[in-house]
Design a binder for these strands. Structure first.
Lengths: 139, 139, 139, 139
DNA sequence: GTGGTCTAGACCACG
DNA sequence: GTGGTCTAGACCACT
């Protein structure tokens, strides 16, 4: 479920946070879905429970999950919406990166091609998600 | 010359490296240009000399500057080319970011508009740089 | 009858205790009133019987309810008096909170207005309770 | 400097956070004041460094302090303002407590007297703070 | 020396 | 079993 690289420059707990966020955005983890317990994830990833706890605390703080002591942790109702808002604000970061690449001589055509490639690739994946959207309608 | 933010999450020495790289790419620092000595930069930024030294060591390691003992440090001949190659490799990072934004519902039109905006803005600035280098004509 | 929020930071059994206490103070549950059995409350709130039991044990310990084996649980005679005493002791806690707000620049006028607002609002509600008890006249 | 009660129901790291907040609101810790290092506070309070770290992380997250790795931690510029806003929002919590006390038979006169007592006591303390406000003017 | 992260092992209250 | 907190001890990058 999670792919952790302990040698990465980004810390382990951040990797967990990021991957959980991706699962929410991709629809793998819908609202109120139960996520693995701190202990179970700890053993399955061979990572100390405290590190998992730190990741979950961060996710809770951001309002993406809610943890019920004695019961477990769950995806919050507006987790997806929060992430969408957050990502929308990150367009500015993207622009900063693009400016640097422009300065390094990457042409506009090259950049536009990259964008189109991404969305082409994304549209193909979206076909699989269609079935999930039907599940949404049932609720 | 340098703008250092000690409260930033990126370390001070990395900020120096990044800003030096930007000056090279933007043509402010051409090949063989003399850069400030460790000592003078240390006092003008009120930053520990060890931190400046670490930045210069990193720049040297990447082949962007060379030091002449007793004289000072200078931008190396291939500095610009090295950075261009490095940035070219960073297109992949950009794509990763774009995929995340696509997943968060940012439309292709919005993304393409952002790219065009960057280059429009860049072309205006490039007018000033024309005298220094003909990078713009190569495209 | 009870409103339980599993996402709340206060534990489920504490929420039950608090709401039961409020019902006693507001006169909804007078002395010797029968309260729901552990089992029935468990199913109606879909909460683990152990949790309900814990709440009832706590209420019993404080002398607010008494249980007749084989019959059920009832509000004790001194329940209201016990709670009044307990709340009276909590004035000190309130003062601590008020000191913090004073330190944060909340003016005396603002605070006095809040108090008056509370009692104004309370007097209106008290009209409905008049038939049940003459608590209001005692003041 | 800090008074920690390990037997308290509120966790150690929260006690540190709360007391730090009080010191900011009372003017003991002005903007940019250096606060004790994680390690030094750890030894002076005989509390594990991780616990102190957790408190500092929380304070950083709230924007009350900023931590510079390798240098130390400092009170942020708008720490006081953030706390004032936070406390202002807590008036509602106070009202909830007051409603409970009203329900328990605490009279309006008693409550108003408590408020006046708090502010009387607060005005006396304010005399000492006057000298500190003069220091503010120098900046 | 400083903040930040991680592991290992333990305890608690809660369900 | 669950989440939450704490201790003890360690490593890392940075100043």
């Amino acid at each position: 479920m999670f792919q952790i690289d302990v040698m990465s420059r980004t810390s382990v707990y951040e990797q967990i946070v990021e991957q959980m966020e991706k699962m929410v955005l991709s629809g793998i983890l819908p609202a109120d879905a139960k996520i693995p317990s701190v202990r179970s994830l700890s053993v399955s990833l061979s990572i100390n429970p405290n590190t998992i706890q730190k990741a979950y605390t961060e996710l809770d703080r951001k309002g993406l999950i809610y943890s019920v002591p004695g019961k477990g942790s769950y995806i919050s109702k507006d987790a997806e919406q929060i992430l969408i808002m957050e990502k929308r604000g990150e367009i500015e970061n993207l622009k900063v990166s693009m400016r640097e690449l422009a300065m390094a001589g990457i042409s506009e055509e090259e950049m536009l091609a990259a964008v189109r490639e991404i969305y082409e690739e994304y549209r193909k994946k979206a076909v699989f998600a269609t079935g999930q959207e039907d599940q949404e309608e049932k609720k």
